[in-house]
Design a binder for these strands. Structure first.
Length: 583
DNA sequence: GCCGTTTTCGGCCCGACTGTTTTCAGTCG
């Protein structure tokens, strides 16, 4: 059982304990342990084997015992029993807005409700409103919540959240009563999926800003509206929250609501350790008084807050409590890659396979975007659904690309279309083209597109097999996940990264917002092993070229610098790099 | 369930908002 699975189980134990009405701090201990484990880069199995769980903060005797059992046996009797004692539908019920563990427990204890369907029926029959602590409004909110859940999945892809957020941010920025404003939350941290949009603004007339926000176009309904915060549901199903504060409070509010929660806990603790107190309104020279302005430490920016806690400014992308404090303390935060550092993409399609535009059109669009190179890596013959190229068509395409390159010979800046293939990794790790064909290509991306159902060992072996081929420059979208749609196939990603380190194979960061694959959480490990990243759009049409920006943001989230990313190289250096493995 | 330069018990982040309450519990972030 790997780290992620263990973390998931601990998280679920936390939720189950909440539903049982257990001590909330015990509940939190499990949830904290889940976070801690998510943040450990090394496989738990080795930590357990070498008895190195001891000393990890937040894991006491009881949790160490349980984690050991999970890692060694893949099961945990305590968890099984707990799960058996609570109807599975209750956890799902807590996902309805406004329903927490206490209310779900009451619904179960008083009315015997064990599922969302039963809850809906009970609301329709007006049985919920009479319960202690419930009422007509709560009942209606539950009905609306269930309806909403059916209509929208609750999470949204990063790029669509930005598309919704940017015009709102712009209109806030132009409002005469707004002094400063920003997005916050997971959007500002560039998480791969977004639950809701958070906006922070400073103003001397907060009521005007709140009114403006709740009266904007495209609102489905207003969830909450107070003096300093409002919450609305937008027509595309996203919830948007706005908080308005005084300008001197703004940096604190922005930092607080940017999160993450785990990051904030450490920030707060650092304040306490220095005899200070940090909350969303300020940093105070007192352990108890929270609102006395005379005791306020003056900070006009987030940078000031970090400095007051003896830290470098931590970029929002890194605020996940995954090592940023240790680095910021020593002044060793990485100089993160910028999307403008990127010179091109090495995994893209044309209408020769399943892309929309012709080679000429793709080449011209990438040139106009300012790129120095753009690889055409259409699908290989086994991907016949995607109109994959056989050897004959591939050979013709190579010639055609050479022809196109002649058109750019006298261009104002160096530019080259690179020939390539996204070659299928067949079962067993064999590739869809023989080596002598691959050798003729500038760029070879190897990806899995079929037979996802093999065991973890087989899938891992498949990818390692591809990495061992000297003509394969990089592995494409290694987990095959489609965010909010399809889970990753079973895979030992650490083993694949190790093999890439060994063979000098690069790993793609697929910038398509449905993929963002490999996951940002693994790049620190890859970087330590010396594995380079390639940020690819995997574009199938012009619009996808803009994904480079999102890909770079995810790379930043993975702590990557310009040096860690191959496609920041100039055309000349890239062409040398493409020969490294073939020497 | 975890933790300890207030150390083996008594804390554990906390403020805004809603709805149900007539003084506060539950939820959320």
């Amino acid at each position: 059982m790997d780290n992620e699975q263990v973390a998931e189980i601990l998280e679920e134990i936390g939720t189950l304990l909440e539903l049982k009405g257990e001590n909330p701090f015990k509940t939190r201990a499990y949830q904290n342990a889940a976070r801690t484990i998510e943040g450990i880069h090394e496989p738990l199995a080795s930590l357990v084997a070498e008895d190195r769980l001891t000393g990890i903060k937040g894991l006491g005797d009881a949790l160490r015992q349980k984690i050991t059992t999970l890692v060694e046996t893949g099961k945990l009797p305590y968890f099984e029993e707990l799960k058996a004692s609570i109807p599975p539908g209750l956890i799902e019920m807590t996902e309805i807005p406004g329903l927490g563990p206490k209310k779900v427990k009451a619904l179960h204890d008083e009315l015997g409700i064990e599922s969302i369907d039963a809850l809906e029926t009970a609301c329709e029959e007006d049985r919920v409103a009479g319960l202690k602590g419930f009422g007509k409004k709560t009942q209606q909110k539950i009905i609306d919540g269930i309806e909403f859940r059916r209509k929208f999945s609750g999470q949204h892809h990063l790029h669509s959240a930005w598309i919704t957020a940017e015009p709102i941010l712009e209109s806030l920025r132009q409002h005469p009563d707004v002094i400063r404003c920003s997005v916050a939350g997971s959007l500002r941290r560039w998480k791969e999926t977004i639950g809701d949009l958070d906006f922070i603004a400073s103003s001397r007339a907060p009521e005007n800003v709140i009114d403006f926000f709740t009266n904007q176009e495209g609102i489905l309904n207003i969830v909450a509206k107070g003096d300093t915060k409002a919450s609305v549901i937008l027509e595309d199903g996203l919830q948007a929250d706005l908080r308005v504060v005084m300008d001197k409070e703004y940096p604190f509010t922005l930092a607080y609501f940017t999160g993450s929660k785990e990051h904030n806990i450490v920030m707060r603790q650092r304040a306490i350790d220095r005899g200070l107190r940090l909350n969303e309104y300020g940093l105070y020279k007192s352990k108890t008084e929270t609102h006395d302005s005379k005791l306020r430490v003056k900070c006009t920016s987030e940078e000031d807050i970090f400095r007051a806690l003896d830290l470098e400014l931590i970029p929002p992308e890194l605020r996940e409590n995954r090592g940023e404090f240790e680095a910021a303390e020593k002044g060793e935060l990485p100089n993160l890659v910028e999307w403008t550092d990127l010179r091109g993409s090495l995994h893209n399609h044309s209408n020769w396979s399943d892309g929309k535009e012709s080679l000429e059109e793709v080449a011209a669009a990438a040139y106009d975007l300012g790129c120095s190179y753009w690889a055409i890596t259409d699908h290989s013959q086994s991907s016949f659904i995607a109109n994959g190229l056989d050897i004959n068509r591939l050979t013709r395409q190579i010639n055609e690309i050479e022809h196109i390159n002649q058109l750019y010979q006298d261009a104002e800046r160096p530019y080259r279309v690179l020939s390539g293939s996204e070659v299928d990794i067949l079962t067993g790790g064999r590739l869809d083209f023989p080596d002598d064909i691959l050798a003729q290509l500038d760029v070879v991306v190897a990806s899995i597109h079929q037979v996802f159902s093999q065991s973890e060992a087989e899938m891992t072996k498949r990818l390692i097999g591809a990495a061992e081929n000297r003509y394969v420059h990089m592995l494409g979208h290694i987990t095959g996940r489609l965010l909010l749609q399809r889970d990753a196939y079973k895979l030992n990603q650490h083993a694949v990264i190790d093999a890439c380190a060994e063979t000098g194979t690069w790993i793609e960061l697929n910038a398509n917002p449905w993929r963002f694959d490999m996951d940002w959480r693994l790049w620190q490990y890859a970087k330590e092993k010396g594995v380079k990243c390639v940020i690819n759009t995997d574009s199938h049409r012009f619009e996808h070229q803009q994904y480079l920006r999102f890909g770079a943001q995810i790379a930043r989230k993975g702590w990557l610098t310009k040096r860690d990313v191959i496609n920041t190289l100039s055309l000349k250096r890239l062409r040398t790099a493409l020969l490294w493995k073939r020497k």
